[in-house]
Design a protein around this nucleic acid. Structure first.
Lengths: 208, 208
DNA sequence: TTATTTTTTGAGCAACCGCTCAATAATGCT
DNA sequence: AGCATTATTGAGCGGTTGCTCAAAAAATAA
């Protein structure tokens, strides 16, 4: 945000490309094809940038991938918050988030979470991208937990429930259902399982 | 199985390498690194075979991958049957299968199902490997369903349950828990969720 | 305009990719 | 042993990979 020296003389030549748009496009490509499946040529074509510009802006393919990861996480958090605001119940917002994320995707890449795809693709235990994705997944779960906390204190869920347990349970169901949809293509079965999950919230399960 | 002509003269030179061993090694490599992440050089080194032999035996990298997929599916089905035989309850066998598959893996690749990793990596909708993996996953679920059917008729599970619903539910939980373990590394949380799942079988949930 | 700074371009490098095939080695039959 | 057949070898092909960098273009400041 600020210059660490007195006053950087001036800027010759200002921002040329729309950085957010570029990252969003890159995210979509990586999300669909994976890290190894997306070549720098693919990126050049899709982003309409030449290698020099790409590497000046992001340093490396992995650097761009990392920006795509954080952009994705921000997008999902924002989307969840929007749903909660639109419905005016936290639980209703969560429910709509789950529905939209799993079922209302027409593109195959959206059938699964970009972060989970990342931790499953990358096997090198010391990869910065792996730990970044794991960190973002943890934050995502904490966000769910915070929402359930709110829903509990608003009396939307019976108070014998534990928000942490619900957060991790929701995360697990999301992962499971999205994998299942990708492997079976059976939208109806998945829809039924989602209904069942939220029905269960009003009654039993997850006490910890 | 049979020769389509009268009688193929003779065999000079018989089988030289242990085909099953080669496929098992290939499976482990592919399972860990993925299809695109495993190079033919990796395979040559790990299998101690030169490209000529590899391509004579399997046709292509994808041909070998396909054999690895079916080998994996067979291995898992066999393992489940063994557990069911050892415990002498079907439900106990399923429970042990879930435990072993998810928690007793020391290698990172075993943190997730090879078939699911495949359907998540391959985005080309017309890929033969994608549909092969989907077919094997379907068979796996049918196998679970058959087991639950048996458990139901043996009175191991309350009879208000539906075996199909339990089969797909188990599949979803397996997918979800394994993804979750890979993203959090939290064995205890996963162990707790598994306990909860099987506790739930004795009482509520999954009526279709 | 001219000088200065920054961005963009794209040819191309070294390494690696999946895979081929002529040469060689190994095997079984007679 | 000699022959026929098959398996194995490994140099190396044409193409792709992630990425570099000198040159050209664009933008601002004076």
């Amino acid at each position: 945000m600020f210059n660490n020296s007195v006053q950087v003389s001036v800027m010759a030549n200002t921002a040329k490309f729309d950085r957010e748009k570029v990252i969003r496009n890159a995210m979509n490509l990586f999300w669909l094809k994976g890290l190894k499946g997306t070549s720098t040529r693919d990126l050049q074509d899709s982003l309409d940038m030449r290698p020099g510009s790409l590497y000046a802006a992001f340093g490396s393919k992995e650097g761009l991938y990392k920006e795509a990861l954080t952009y994705y996480a921000g997008l999902m958090a924002e989307r969840l918050q929007n749903y909660i605001d639109e419905e005016d119940s936290t639980l209703g917002g969560i429910k709509r988030f789950v529905h939209c994320n799993i079922l209302e995707s027409d593109f195959p890449e959206e059938a699964h979470c970009f972060l989970v795809k990342t931790v499953l693709e990358i096997y090198e235990q010391d990869s910065p991208l792996l730990s970044e994705a794991q960190t973002l997944l943890k934050k995502s779960e904490e966000n769910f937990t915070r929402c359930f906390q709110k829903a509990l204190s608003d009396g939307e869920i019976p108070d014998h429930h534990n928000p942490q347990a619900l957060g991790s349970l929701l995360q697990i169901q999301l992962f499971g259902l999205r994998s299942y949809l990708r492997s079976t293509q059976d939208r109806d079965a998945v829809k039924g399982q989602i209904e069942m999950f939220f029905k269960g919230l009003d009654t039993t399960t997850a006490k910890t």
